[in-house]
Design a protein around this nucleic acid. Structure first.
Lengths: 306, 306
DNA sequence: CATCAGTCCTATAACGATAAAAGACGTAGC
DNA sequence: GCTACGTCTTTTATCGTTATAGGACTGATG
């Protein structure tokens, strides 16, 4: 095989939303813009829609013939890039409790298990090594460091430094800076969350991510902003993994965010700093308790085995 | 082609230092340890030495027949891993003044130019992207951000945060901690430098690197320690590129390091912090002036061309 | 005359293959 | 009984190839 057609499949699925009976599809360039792909891919999608009998396509006229049915969609698992599949498989392995820190990791075994090429795994490992969970010596195997308590502590030490600095920078931004408008919008989303938390269950991680990224962007420092990718990834998988008390944790975080936002708005750097620290301390504890639980589970399993 | 035999060639060249007329080579395992390679590679080296008539090899006896000559060595450019060649070529391109920030970068052209495969370039780019000088959008080309003044400022902002924290942590280390002994050794090297700077010309970058890495290690934080790789790489190529006033700059840095060391030893965190800040300010200025000179050269060239 | 589609070329993502290097295991020699 | 060597297996580094996606150019169309 060669390059996978996940971009095509994902965009094809998205494009079906525009296929409304009796309507006419826009120009290729317009479709390309809306779907976020190139015109080449759009043309491939249109060809496929013709083949499926969804549309009639003659140059400028793209007439919808029938509404899409469930079987017109590509299965979801085929729409993710190989790299994403590798990432997910890898993270679920790292987050699972049976990884001993310092254990070796084999590229080709993992590739075989997932049904992808060794290069795909290899490139993932290289990309992933900046997250501090794996390391390698030249010409030797990769070593899994394990998602340990030490890792969480080190991660949060840097996060605190970076976010405090960013929060202070944010508080100093001139009032006409677009970041304030973005903050207003995010604050509104938070209030909506408080009002109907149940309806928005599972959508907090995304909001959380956007909130913290906005804060970090005020640093205007690519290293600080990039570092948030590490935190973001860890939290992304962490949320998926530990669903206990989700509602309560989210509610706490939302309230802390609102205080934090108020602190930023006050223009008093010390206020911003105070609420920033407070929120980070909570987030730190949440992550640490999960990390400890996993480490306990692992050592217990080892004792039982040994 | 497949995996390159640079490990073999490099180790072969090194092994020739042990080939002294009339002597006998140690065991395979011992050689492997000394050369830092596997026994497999050692055996390949011994085979090659036999083929070159350098030694007679019969099981445990490895009798040297003649001293190595100049032509017994592999040329130096064949002893570097492909990845290292890619790195060097890439850095000299980024550091050269004719890169416009935001310009595109083509994997296959670069691969053809260097005579390596596209995968080699690709893996390098992935590895290198954590240095903040390049970026990519999915399914699109790489973008060179350029080694601009903004880059240097952002780099130093983070460096200051990390090194100050590390220096404070260092000052707090208990006196029996091995880091203090390492610091003693490095201090002695600095004093030797002051006494005979000319004899040690060109060897300061290595000393500088080891000194700062030692400081950073006191943070016990993998993210802080890893970040020093970024700084180290930038400085490595920067030193090679800007040789003006080298002696003077080195002498200043050595004196600042000695003050910094004294500050760490005093046990007063404020002292350590003061001299740390002072040294970092100098380093920052040095890098910035070089960055500005390069940016000026570029815009001048562009004006001349436009 | 701006927007659209047809066509073609180029660059990237992913693959599988191969030689180099690492490493494991058993046996021989001192 | 330890150390060293012979042999074999496993794993990585690097390569070249292929299908997909991006993008540029050009003529057609309203």
């Amino acid at each position: 095989m060669s390059k996978s057609d996940t971009v095509f499949k994902e965009a094809y699925n998205q494009s079906l939303a525009l296929v409304v009976e009796g309507s006419v599809l826009p120009s290729e360039a317009e479709l390309a813009r809306r779907l976020g792909v190139s015109r080449t891919t759009v043309r491939a999608i249109l060809d496929a829609q013709v083949a499926a009998g969804l549309i009639a396509w003659d140059s400028r006229l793209k007439q919808v013939l029938r509404a899409p049915r469930a079987e017109d969609y590509f299965p979801e698992d085929q729409t993710d890039a190989v790299s994403l599949r590798v990432e997910r498989a890898f993270m679920s392995r790292v987050l699972s409790s049976d990884i001993r820190p310092g254990s070796q990791f084999n590229e080709s075994d993992f590739a075989r298990e997932l049904g992808v090429s060794t290069s795909a795994v290899r490139e993932f490992m290289i990309r992933f090594s900046r997250f501090g969970l794996i390391e390698k010596q030249r010409n030797r195997h990769w070593v899994l460091n394990g998602f340990t308590e030490a890792f969480s502590l080190e991660l949060f030490e840097v996060r605190e430094m970076f976010e405090l600095r960013s929060a202070r920078a944010f508080a100093r931004l001139p009032r006409e800076h677009p970041a304030w408008a973005a903050l207003d919008a995010i604050e509104a989303e938070h209030r909506a969350f408080l009002e109907a938390p149940r309806a928005r269950l599972g959508r907090f991680p995304d909001l959380d991510d956007r909130f913290h990224r906005l804060i970090h962007s005020a640093s205007s420092n690519r290293f600080i902003i990039d570092f948030y990718d590490v935190i973001s990834l860890i939290f992304h998988y962490h949320y998926q993994w530990s669903k206990i008390d989700e509602m309560e944790r989210n509610a706490t975080a939302v309230r802390e965010h609102l205080d934090y936002i108020a602190g930023l708005r006050s223009g008093e750097e010390l206020d911003a700093e105070f609420y920033c620290r407070k929120h980070l301390a909570t987030a730190r504890e949440t992550l640490l308790s999960a990390t400890r639980a996993r480490e306990d589970a692992r050592s217990e399993a080892e004792n039982a085995a040994g």
